[in-house]
């Protein structure tokens, strides 16, 4: 929305438009299927019928990052996988969000001390918006993280750019 960024003061003109756009964005967060390890099982459980992530509009898991809004990094990220995570994150289109699900992606998890091949937290590779701790986090915790992400989106405004651009090496 570059035509309107930083042109007016906050709250002018765009408030209702913000409300409408944010309402649409927060209730249709489409995640990319990125289950790497055990947290993927809990992500599948959240997508299944008992805990149903689809009632938040986030049940349409896209296989390709190019059509997704949210990357739920569910599982331990190893050094071998790190370049692929970065590449898939770069392939997502703005506005995009990252949820670090589980202790391994938050800060190395149980492999923090002796994991020679584990990246100690996925935020060493890609910028993270929401951290959901747990090993693995219960589906309710994952849904809480999703709702916090919805709150974060609700606070956005099209008059200010909120996404982060980085140098892409991989």
């Amino acid at each position: 929305m570059s035509w309107i960024e930083n042109r007016f003061e906050d709250g002018l003109i765009v408030t209702s438009l913000d409300w409408a756009i944010n309402w649409a964005r927060q209730n249709s967060i489409w995640p990319v299927t990125f289950g790497i390890a055990c947290c993927a099982i809990e992500m599948m459980a959240t997508g299944a019928s008992r805990f149903d992530i689809d009632r938040f509009g986030a049940g349409a898991f896209r296989p390709t990052p190019r059509q997704a809004d949210l990357m739920i990094v569910a599982g331990t990220v190893t050094y071998k996988m790190a370049s692929r995570v970065k590449r898939l994150y770069n392939q997502m289109a703005d506005p995009k969000y990252v949820m670090a699900m589980g202790a391994c992606t938050v800060g190395g998890g149980p492999y923090f001390k002796h994991g020679y091949h584990v990246v100690k937290g996925v935020d060493l590779i890609i910028p993270v918006d929401i951290y959901v701790p747990g090993c693995p986090p219960r589906p309710e915790a994952l849904l809480e993280g999703l709702m916090r992400l919805q709150d974060k989106i609700r606070r956005e405004t099209i008059a200010r750019k909120t996404t982060v651009r980085e140098n892409d090496e991989w």
Partner: peptide
């Protein structure tokens, strides 16, 4: 470190 990613906190 490995390819720029810190190997330890």
């Amino acid at each position: 470190e490995y390819h720029g990613i810190p190997g330890t906190t």
